[in-house]
Design a protein around this nucleic acid. Structure first.
Lengths: 121, 121
DNA sequence: AGAAGATATGAGCTTGTGATCATATGTTGA
DNA sequence: TCAACATATGATCACAAGCTCATATCTTCT
């Protein structure tokens, strides 16, 4: 991943100040990660998994209040993105958050949410 | 905001393990915040603003490579969400990130992205 | 093997959302 | 005041994404 340094002085294009924005590809990838957390149901699933450690699809669906099919579909996305991992035990499949960084990310997000000024529209 | 404690032992419902998922409303709100960052263009805008401090719509549009209209529309969303603030100076309107927490959030997200295991599909 | 359970997946439908175009608002200078 | 500029906003369209329904896969039990 190529994250442009924040205050380099490399000569770049001309006209627009040519700042050091996030590279287009990196932005796409990062946005994709955020998108996974940008859906209430998925967010709750991740939260539930962080909290419980491991949960099977059925329980997760119950906790979230979604159908098992919808839950499975969403878990698939999270799984393909590497955000959760699956472990089969008999008929059930247990999911868990694959990367503890997610916990930190959510904590920071909650902090941000708490401090966000929601008074000036 | 009511974030359920992670390991409380409060008696809750019955059937589904009744874990301590994020409340539905909180999940919605948090997801909304994430959604703002879940779009490459908006993400790059925020990044550019964090980097430059302040930028007018036109320059921002140039850096991102979007039309001024699209940029304005997206800035509107960020503004309504309180993520950025606008300051008018003559004909131009300068935008800046309203909450430094965003920087931390992005840093953590990048960290997560770097550490994410993208090898098991 | 066959049935039932748990999850996965594909197709189709419906809603949400970003981009564009047209237009409105606000600002500066002639 | 009028023209040109900068931004904002509303309407519309096209595409992305979630949900559901039907079906497939995998596992256990009899």
């Amino acid at each position: 991943m190529v994250v442009m340094p924040r205050h380099s002085h490399v000569a770049e294009g001309s006209v627009p100040p040519a700042g050091h924005t996030l590279g287009i590809d990196d932005a796409r990838h990062l946005a994709e990660r955020f998108k996974l957390l940008a859906e209430p149901s998925r967010l709750r699933m991740v939260y539930a998994l962080l909290d419980a450690g491991e949960l099977c699809v059925n329980d997760l669906a119950g906790m979230i209040g979604s159908s098992e099919s919808a839950t499975s579909h969403q878990l698939r996305q999270l799984r393909l993105a590497g955000l959760v991992r699956a472990r089969r035990d008999g008929r059930e499949v247990f999911y868990a958050v694959a990367d503890e960084h997610v916990r930190l990310l959510l904590d920071v997000a909650v902090e941000h949410y708490l401090h966000a000024d929601r008074t000036k529209p």
